[in-house]
Design a protein around this nucleic acid. Structure first.
Length: 819
DNA sequence: GAGCATCGGGG
DNA sequence: GTGTACGATGCTC
């Protein structure tokens, strides 16, 4: 007897059962229970485009490849009329017995004489399924079928049919955040093989817990003692099993916490079988490690923040403290982690504050996840891919999968990913980027700022720029060519709308509709509507970069070039007109123009914008961004995918906005890190640039006068391979050799500490072990010019100071002697 | 200036 | 998993 259930899909995987692929969807039912839905009605396939439209189905159907353990064969074929880059093609849809047979068979046939090309052979089976069955994660679906008896932590339902039934969305998945602390001597590399996990904490809604395996006196009720590391790991499993989260989240948990837990669990032969199908947590280690749990979405919130919203954050670092400060207005607890090892060994009655610290990190992670969830959820709904994948995708991937999801509805076959050689070729294709009108560095008053609203997306749409409209045969004579001095001319079809322009127009108009609704909505709905319009904007803005990205399926250098060419054309138009009308143009970058009023009124500036708008095509629009009483400008740096802004504006409220400088890395000396931190603090908190400059100058003069202790000038670098394997010998390699000569065991992973001392030789020959360096022997000039100055130079540049201002010797006279 | 090496996040 | 990896920066040669 068939039953109906309603559920929100969260994640999906597939397994082979009796020689057939079965999709497992995991999610929540509409009444809040976890469930897994099985669907065995989907077959793997790919496309073949034969030469000259000759049907080779019969030949394809005979393919059968037998290996030791398995067999790959073509199950059936269908002939179809599809489109490829806008052109109609005759294609054969080749079904195989298993998903894994697709690449095997594709490799066999790709060189066949009768085949023009092979397509869509590398689409992960689950994604293919979600696209073809039109299943969007997190949206309410109905399944028809029956419950099955199968080993699982949750109910299992075998579906004959699954369909979306409404636009209801799972807005409040159950989130559980966690964090570990490990035993780690602070001047050695983190080593999961050697050092145990000593603390573990969880934070969820109405739930907090901190586990630790040494006892001490405490009144804190969320602290729970266990007796060993292995018991701690068992607690990790127990909490997850009983809390039943939809989402398990950590901060850099892909790269640290979960791989660490896995390594330790392996040591004790503990199975981390927390998957809803009792499968083990899986660590996949390639360039970027990822960790998967069947049925539980593992969200590494650090990765999402860095990849997707990093661009709009002010922070110069993505560590938890900086990110939580900016997004939540809350910091990490101020305890010294370097002290934890010692406290653990010798002082364990004082561990309480570390447990609080540990729990607080889970809390911050939880709050970050909850804060980001609306944006993540909307991105998932737009792109049509589960949270787990969206979490790990960059913008080009998000755009690509958005296009992939739409392609079947336009009957389009996807182009293939470029081969290695093709990528190398494409990397050489550079093109002119945005126009930048360099400002004269300095201080200005009465600034007004104009912005083209979504410049590149609106150009793409208004000029019908796409892979299927570029240089069409039908419009060569009538279409208007791209302006500028391009080596090659491009035009775009004037008769029919392109595939990509249609997609982007859809994104833009959906966003406009939502912004209209937001104006009338209450606060409750505001949060996710705002997240939605923001996700739409992020995605639309990424199309231009995608078209010029060397790894893109729908790569088109001509489209990318045309977009920037039109961008330069329009911004020039604004600049020329502004100058004609008597405004002073002080700075322009990509899509924005900064003018000074030069005696004119703010209203005249607004009227100017209106006159520009009356001449713009399609949905293009110049917006009046705002008025600033004062500001400082520095030159902007260009990159192929857009310009990096570098300026500071003082708003009418007196707040300072600094953009475009980066910070020092871990392998810098403490003095360099220290001075940057202090300078930023003084500028941002006290708004006192003179004081910041004085501070930096004091540090420089202390360096000159050899007042800085050796430990402040130690540089630490990790050895990546054996000393002999280095072709280029950096200072740390030279010092590592010295250590080895002293009989120390040095190898890959060792952290090499060194100090650069005075002399004229190459840096590596002047690099010594800190223990061999006498007080004051360090090379003051090196630390001033290569460490301190670079770490603060950009900051001061933005504020109008020069390197020389920093190097200027301090005046001798101070009146303090008189008092 | 090309080419190689390292970092990030986490403790 | 029918896949795949980045982008910026410093030092040597």
């Amino acid at each position: 007897m068939a039953e109906k259930i309603e559920f929100f899909p969260l994640d999906a995987t597939y397994k082979i059962d009796n020689g057939k692929a079965v999709i497992y969807l995991y999610g929540r039912t509409s009444d809040g229970r976890q469930i897994s839905i099985l669907d065995s009605n989907f077959e793997p396939y790919f496309y073949v485009i034969p030469k000259d439209g000759i049907d080779i189905s019969e030949k394809l159907e005979k393919i059968r490849i037998e290996n030791v353990n398995d067999v790959s064969f073509v199950a059936k074929t269908e002939t179809v009329i599809k489109k490829f880059l806008g052109k109609e093609v005759f294609a054969i849809k080749v079904y195989t017995n298993l998903p894994s047979s697709v690449p095997v068979i594709k490799d066999v046939i790709k060189e066949w004489e009768a085949i023009e090309s092979v397509h869509e052979y590398d689409i992960p089976f689950v994604r293919r399924y979600l696209i073809d069955k039109n299943i969007t994660p997190l949206i309410l679906h109905q399944a028809i079928g029956e419950f099955a008896n199968q080993k699982s932590r949750v109910a299992v339902f075998k579906a004959d049919n699954i369909e979306q039934v409404s636009s209801d969305t799972l807005h409040n998945p159950k989130v559980l955040a966690f964090d570990i602390e490990t035993y780690s001597p602070f001047d050695l590399a983190i080593d999961a093989e050697k050092n145990p996990i000593i603390m573990l904490s969880f934070y969820g809604e109405n739930f907090k817990k901190a586990f630790v395996w040494k006892r001490f006196k405490t009144d804190i009720d969320y602290i729970e003692f266990v007796d060993s590391e292995s018991e701690l790991i068992e607690k990790f499993k127990e909490v997850i099993e009983s809390y039943k989260p939809d989402i398990l989240t950590g901060y850099f948990s892909d790269g640290f916490d979960l791989p660490y837990i896995k390594t330790r669990a392996d040591k004790y032969k503990i199975k981390l079988d927390i998957g809803l199908d009792y499968s083990e947590l899986k660590v996949k280690s390639t360039r970027e490690t990822t960790v998967t749990i069947n049925g539980i979405t593992h969200l590494d919130i650090f990765k999402f923040i860095k990849k997707v919203i990093g661009g709009v954050l002010e922070t110069y670092s993505y560590d938890l403290n900086a990110v939580a400060s900016e997004l939540l207005g809350e910091k990490k607890h101020d305890v010294s982690l370097a002290d934890l090892t010692n406290t653990w060994d010798n002082n364990h009655e004082n561990l309480e504050k570390f447990c609080e610290y540990n729990l607080h990190d889970s809390l911050l992670t939880y709050n970050l996840a909850v804060k980001m969830l609306p944006t993540i959820i909307e991105m998932v709904k737009i792109v049509g891919i589960p949270i787990y994948d969206v979490n790990r995708m960059g913008f080009s991937q998000l755009v690509e999968w958005y296009i992939m999801k739409q392609a079947p509805q336009f009957n389009e076959i996807a182009p293939n990913k470029p081969s290695y050689d093709e990528v190398q070729q494409r990397r050489l294709n550079t093109y002119k980027g945005a126009f930048v009108y360099e400002p004269k560095p300095g201080f200005y008053k009465d600034i007004v700022v104009f912005d083209f609203r979504s410049l590149y997306p609106t150009i793409l749409s208004s000029h019908n720029i796409g892979t299927d409209t570029i240089n069409c045969a039908c419009c060569e004579d009538i279409a208007k060519a791209t302006p500028g001095d391009e080596s090659e001319k491009h035009w775009f079809c004037a008769k029919r709308k392109g595939f990509i322009p249609t997609l982007i127009e859809d994104l833009i108009s959906r966003r406009i509709r939502i912004k209209e609704i937001i104006k009338q909505e209450n606060d409750e709905k505001f949060a996710f509507l705002d997240a939605r319009q923001n996700s739409l904007k992020l995605l639309a803005n990424s199309f231009y970069g995608y078209l010029g990205f060397f790894g893109a399926r729908w790569y088109s250098i001509g489209c990318a070039r045309s977009i920037t060419a039109w961008g330069r054309f329009y911004i020039h138009k604004v600049i020329d007109k502004a100058q004609k009308e008597g405004f002073f143009v002080l700075y322009s970058d990509t899509d924005s123009v900064f003018l000074t009023l030069d005696g004119k009124s703010e209203n005249e500036a607004k009227i100017f914008a209106e006159s520009i708008n009356s001449e713009l095509p399609g949905i293009m629009e110049l917006e009046y961004e705002g008025f600033y009483p004062s500001g400082i400008f520095v030159s902007a740096k260009l990159s192929p995918f857009g310009a990096k802004k570098k300026y500071a504006l003082m708003s009418q409220q007196g707040t300072l906005k600094i953009k475009g400088f980066e910070t020092v890395r871990r392998n810098w000396s403490l003095i360099a890190k220290d001075v940057q931190e202090k300078v930023l603090e003084i500028i941002l908190r006290e708004n006192d640039t003179k004081k910041a400059l004085e501070y930096a100058k004091n540090v420089i003069s202390d360096l000159r006068n050899k007042k800085i202790p050796i430990e402040m000038v130690v540089i630490r670098t990790q050895l990546q391979k054996d000393i002999l394997d280095y072709a280029a010998k950096g200072p740390h390699v030279a010092v590592a050799q010295k250590l080895k000569n002293k009989g120390r065991s040095i190898g890959p992973g060792s952290i090499i500490k060194y100090v650069v001392t005075q002399g004229n030789d190459m840096i590596r020959n002047r690099s010594k072990l800190p223990e061999d360096v006498k007080e004051g022997e360090y090379d003051a000039d090196y630390y001033i010019n290569n460490q301190v100055i670079p770490s603060v130079e950009r900051i001061f540049n933005v504020l109008g100071y020069k390197k020389e201002d920093l190097l200027e010797q301090k005046e001798q006279t101070k009146l303090e002697g008189f008092f």
